[in-house]
């Protein structure tokens, strides 16, 4: 299994973190995971909503110190 890709989108505002995630997923293979680090609170709810809408898999959402980690697995 390939290494998980990490997108550091801390400091970016909506919809920057989501767009960075989508660009990374587009280049990923099915089954690979992408972790987004975001300090934008809106993105922490928006990213899972987008994942549900388009049919990928939300692996985890974890609050860290001053930011969140959201891990998404490409499902299609």
């Amino acid at each position: 299994m390939s290494e998980r890709q990490i997108i550091d989108a801390r400091g970016a505002f909506c919809p920057g973190p989501l767009m960075e995630l989508i660009a990374a997923l587009k280049l990923s293979a099915v089954g690979e995971e992408v972790e987004v680090l975001s300090s934008d609170k809106g993105s922490v709810t928006d990213i899972p909503e987008w994942v549900k809408k388009v049919g990928h898999t939300l692996v985890t959402t974890t609050e860290k110190e001053g930011y969140w980690s959201v891990v998404v697995r490409k499902a299609k």
Binding site: C14, P15, L18, M19, I22, D46, W50, K53, V54
Partner: peptide, 11 residues
């Protein structure tokens, strides 16, 4: 731009 881009990437 936000509405158009987010809708477009949401299929």
């Amino acid at each position: 731009a936000m509405t158009a881009s987010v809708a477009a990437v949401s299929d």
